[in-house]
Design a protein around this nucleic acid. Structure first.
Lengths: 250, 250
DNA sequence: GCAAGGTTTTGAACGCGTTCGAAACCAGCG
DNA sequence: CGCTGGTTTCGAACGCGTTCAAAACCTTGC
């Protein structure tokens, strides 16, 4: 079995990142701008942070900021990439000693909530961006979104490191990582709208929903469910995976 | 049984609509601006249509447009309300003679696709707005969103007009309309990202997924599934409905 | 050392959404 | 009729994201 790349240290960029860094100094400027932006986003929120402020605070001109990030949106991207990378690392650590699938899944999701917690306030922006099919930042429409690849790889580990995986239909094991990633997206959706302190409600949602999900997957092994599992697999293969950029495996 | 209000003719407005119309002339101006905006949105798309253009085309000043719609966003709202209303009317007509649940559900969803078809190009905007938890336009976060009430009422009819409803657990019948509305939201999500001509892919998705959904609901009647159905009901009651503005029924 | 060509940086300028103080309009009342 | 208080309309002005032509800087080859 091939281990997919788990995501490079968050330096890579999409179209918005302009030409690849030619010099060290250039790379430094780029990093400086991103750091500054991230700090200001956290301090004042996304809308309130103006490009002029970022440039001023970083000690460069606005034009220069745009030289590295062709739109304000693309500053989000850097941020999001890094978070995904941190999440995967943290989740791997936390679930290292656990073999139970439901537990592993819950650990992975809770780890996401913890990693994302500091950014909950302006997470709405991430989400708005993700929801725009015209934006190349959207993890749904952009087939080569590095953050998605990283996350899907993580969920593959969640599954394959569990005692459940060997008992399952191989085809299903192939599909599940993407489905679990979608599950995370649902949790994220819930989280974004969650206004309870420490997003306690989302945490409870995760606690309650993971066992149900695990149970459902487990049930798929029994004969009675063959037909409905076949249908579900068909739906996923034909309609979900192609949309998020996997070509259907024949 | 009580028939919920199916949505007033799309005149009502949320906070962005400013004070209620005092005079006929005022109401006329308001309508003129909305009509003009909708026409231009369709002609050139949302981003390309500037407030200045809307005002000019409508023969009023920008300031005046803002007097009636406190932000460009709120013009979307009028649009969306009307579409939802049209959809409900059309779907009712189409499914009048059908009792089979799966068929009724498919009719309702296809009707939505047909109603929304002319606006597919700039639908991304609706969606972005809906995805913003801070916006009062979001059908998720805004508890009294008229469009959602209309749509949920429609799905209640989809279910209760079918031969399936009487056979189901009463509690489940109470929950399902909202779940079906969520199903529509998923379809909308899919549709927004769908780039195939005439959104053929989404249409196929609907054709394929409605029977599966119907089958799942139907299965819930059998004894074997009691525990998992109970779990699912719990999740919906405790985590989904409260979020979209229903107080849990004790 | 210098010219050529690329990379990086600059800041003024543009277009847009939005705001706001003031004008115009329109009752109803004395 | 004129005054008064509310409603409606106006358009200049503000702040922000973004663009762009030109400048500054930095190699590299001669």
């Amino acid at each position: 079995m091939d281990v997919p790349e788990t995501g490079a240290p968050p330096t890579s960029e999409l179209p918005g990142g302009r030409a690849q860094p030619k010099t060290d100094k250039s790379e430094a400027t780029r990093a400086l701008i991103l750091e500054t932006a991230m700090r200001l986003f956290q301090e004042r929120g996304y809308e309130k942070t103006t490009m002029r402020a970022i440039a001023a605070e970083a000690g460069v001109s606005v034009g220069n900021a745009y030289y590295y990030f062709s739109a304000k949106e693309f500053l989000i991207q850097g941020f999001y990439d890094r978070m995904t990378y941190d999440h995967a690392a943290d989740a791997r650590l936390r679930m290292a000693g656990t073999r139970d699938f439901a537990e592993r899944l819950e650990i992975a999701l809770v780890s996401w909530l913890d990693t994302a917690a500091p950014y909950h306030e302006f997470s709405a922006q991430f989400f708005r961006t993700a929801a725009d099919p015209n934006s190349s930042l959207s993890p749904f429409s952009n087939e080569s979104h590095p953050a998605r690849a990283t996350a899907v790889a993580l969920f593959r580990e969640v599954l394959e490191g569990s005692e459940l995986a060997p008992k399952l239909d191989a085809e299903l094991v192939e599909l599940l990582p993407d489905v679990l990633w979608l599950h995370l997206m649902v949790v994220v959706l819930y989280w974004v709208f969650d206004r309870t302190p420490d997003t306690e409600r989302t945490r409870e949602f995760v606690r309650r929903s993971t066992p149900v999900a695990a149970r459902l997957i487990n049930l798929s092994r029994y004969r009675v469910f063959r037909p409905i599992v076949r249908d579900a697999k068909g739906l996923i293969q034909d309609f979900i995976l192609p949309t998020i950029g996997k070509t259907a495996v024949k």
